[in-house]
């Protein structure tokens, strides 16, 4: 009898179609060891397909069930699960789509839709804010407002795409609406959780640059400079108000070393 580790490695190989090592250790009966191993292989493949389908419903709707299944099975072969928690399985599916010419050539925006769907899942599962966001977090009285850093809501995610990804995603949910036109252009946007539901909103590229700068730890001045670099007309106050109104900034802290 092989050791437990040898046996489990043999079983793992069998899940990749190399059942030779494990067959001798199994009492196959009339059904046969290969068929019995196949029950597990099929169940595992079905679980991964179901997990990806649950996480990427718009991708599935866009490419159809048969193509999605082929894509999902190939992804599963190349990307084994690394966690006992299936909620984190499928994180690399957008990159996999991006590198799959048969997927990206007919549907050039497919990887960005997948990216949006994964960000929506991350937003749904992210930590709660430590406290209910104050609609107007207080600015430390002695601090120079432009030298403050902002703490973003833990669920806040952002995306930038060369395609109208939010419009396409909405259309997948309600395909009776007129289909979005790809020449509607690029979209930037935010995804977050509000009252337990995932929300999303397209934003101006300058606002996207502002949020990304804040996320990287920049001060309000740094972030405003990033926004202004995108658009001379960027207005810090308006952008900040939009984030505060949505509860997406939960705190302000002075830059280290400033007073």
């Amino acid at each position: 009898m092989p050791s437990l580790r040898e046996l489990q490695r043999g079983f793992a190989a069998a899940m990749h179609g190399r059942a030779g090592e494990i067959i001798a250790a199994i009492d196959g009966g009339a059904l046969g060891a290969g068929a019995r191993v196949g029950i597990y292989r099929n169940a595992i493949a079905a679980t991964r397909l179901r997990t990806l389908s649950d996480s990427y419903p718009a991708v599935r709707a866009l490419v159809g069930d048969a193509f999605f299944e082929r894509l999902a099975y190939r992804y599963s072969d190349l990307n084994p699960s690394r966690s006992g928690d299936l909620c984190v399985y499928g994180a690399r599916f957008p990159q996999f789509i991006e590198q799959s010419p048969e997927a990206i050539e007919p549907v050039p925006y497919l990887a960005d839709i997948a990216r949006l769907e994964w960000l929506r899942q991350e937003a749904a599962l992210a930590a709660d804010a430590d406290s209910v966001p104050d609609p107007m977090p207080r600015l430390p009285a002695a601090a120079d407002p432009r030298r403050l850093r902002a703490t973003l809501h833990p669920s806040l995610r952002s995306i930038r795409s060369a395609f109208p990804v939010f419009a396409i995603h909405r259309w997948c949910d309600a395909p009776a609406e007129p289909a979005p036109r790809l020449d509607d252009g690029a979209e930037c946007g935010l995804i977050w959780r509000s009252d337990g539901e995932v929300a999303e909103s397209a934003i101006h590229p300058a606002s996207y640059a502002f949020v990304e700068a804040l996320r990287e730890g920049g001060t309000l001045a740094d972030a405003a400079a990033a926004g202004e670099a995108q658009d001379d007309g960027f207005r810090l106050r308006d952008c900040l108000d939009g984030l505060l109104d949505r509860g997406l900034i939960v705190d302000f802290t002075p830059q280290a070393g400033s007073s």
């Binding site: 437990l4 489990q8 490695r9 169940a43 006992g84």
Partner: peptide, 24 residues
């Protein structure tokens, strides 16, 4: 069991009914 060498199968896989498996 459901994982080996860092790969997870997310299934309840059968163990051999050996003393080694019981001790583990």
């Amino acid at each position: 069991w459901g994982a080996i060498d860092g790969m997870h199968w997310n299934d309840l896989l059968p163990l051999p009914h050996t003393r080694e498996a019981a001790a583990l």
